[in-house]
């Protein structure tokens, strides 16, 4: 089974029923899977902070949410993470494509990559870095942990994890 399918399966297994996405090439397979899944409502958003608002509403509506986005979004969403997700104590797993790591071909992506972990660390967001394909086996535990803790968590998935560019 492809990594993308394993991720979608894990979302469904953990009763994640609402997913919002802002696309990235690496995440295309997951986004397709989410769209195709009869167990998940998929609402694409135009910007990641908007997506986090949708997720907050979904959570209060009784559904487990997830946001899928690029690491550049961390720069866009700091205020929302602090004053909505964290301040109101809401869970939010963030499945993030970690652009700008080894194998990257677009130099500008590195500019946010060098800040990504530092920003997540500054926000006290528990962060899991998927570097090898087998790391996908941690998805279930991370999702479970996120909904238990009522906090945002970050899963950074780099190019090596996805099998290179």
């Amino acid at each position: 089974m492809s990594i993308s399918d394993q991720i979608v399966d894990s979302l469904v297994r953990n009763k994640v029923e609402f997913v919002t996405t802002v696309p990235c090439k690496q995440l295309a397979g997951v986004i397709e899977g989410v769209e195709a899944s009869p167990d998940i409502m998929h609402v694409p958003s135009n910007k990641e902070d908007e997506g986090m608002g949708l997720c907050a509403g979904a959570w209060m509506g009784g559904k487990r949410p997830c946001i899928i986005m690029q690491n550049t979004a961390i720069g866009v969403t700091i205020n929302t993470l602090a004053t909505l997700t964290q301040f109101y104590q809401m869970p939010l797993p963030m499945l993030i494509s970690y652009r700008g790591e080894l194998g990257e071909r677009v130099a500008c992506q590195v500019e946010m990559a060098v800040h990504t972990k530092a920003l997540l660390d500054q926000l006290n967001i528990q962060t899991y870095h998927f570097h090898r394909p087998e790391d996908v086996s941690e998805m279930d535990t991370i999702l479970n942990h996120t909904f238990m803790s009522r906090k945002p968590t970050a899963i950074l998935t780099d190019s090596n994890f996805w099998g290179g560019y």
Partner: peptide, 22 residues
């Protein structure tokens, strides 16, 4: 009533997310 204490701009997104899910 859900009062937003921070995060300007997201009331409509929160409302839509809530409406779609219950």
């Amino acid at each position: 009533n859900f009062y937003m204490l921070g995060t300007m701009g997201l009331a409509s997104s929160i409302g839509l997310g809530l409406a779609l899910n219950q």
